[in-house]
């Protein structure tokens, strides 16, 4: 499943996309430890697969939560994307 967590508001679109099919086979669960804001949690989804999701309380605050990793002057890489070896994570902004 392609799961898009986040939102769009007047200021823009802030989505973190997780390709959860890749999580099913993932051995490392690297995302969990990589994010300095602890955004990633592993949970059973509705079809009983153990996959990564974005912590419930953070879903409406991604712009703020990810601010530290995304200085206004630009950034080269993001800890979560670098850590996830199966390449399941992408950001919309």
């Amino acid at each position: 499943m392609i799961a898009n967590y986040g939102y769009q508001d007047g200021s823009g679109e802030y989505y973190i996309t997780i390709d959860t099919d890749r999580c099913i086979e993932c051995e490392g669960r690297w995302c969990v430890g990589a994010c300095p804001q602890s955004l990633f949690v592993i949970e059973a989804d509705d079809y009983d697969d153990e996959v990564a999701t974005i912590a419930e309380g953070a879903r409406k605050k991604l712009k703020e939560k990810c601010a530290a990793c995304k200085p206004a002057g630009g950034h080269e890489s993001l800890p979560c994307i670098d850590a996830c070896r199966p390449g399941a994570i992408s950001h919309s902004w």
């Binding site: 392609i2 898009n4 939102y7 769009q8 508001d9 007047g10 989505y15 409406k60």
Partner: peptide
């Protein structure tokens, strides 16, 4: 479900 997106932050 294969793909989903939602918005429950903004009233717009």
């Amino acid at each position: 479900v294969q793909n989903f997106i939602m918005n429950d932050k903004c009233a717009a």
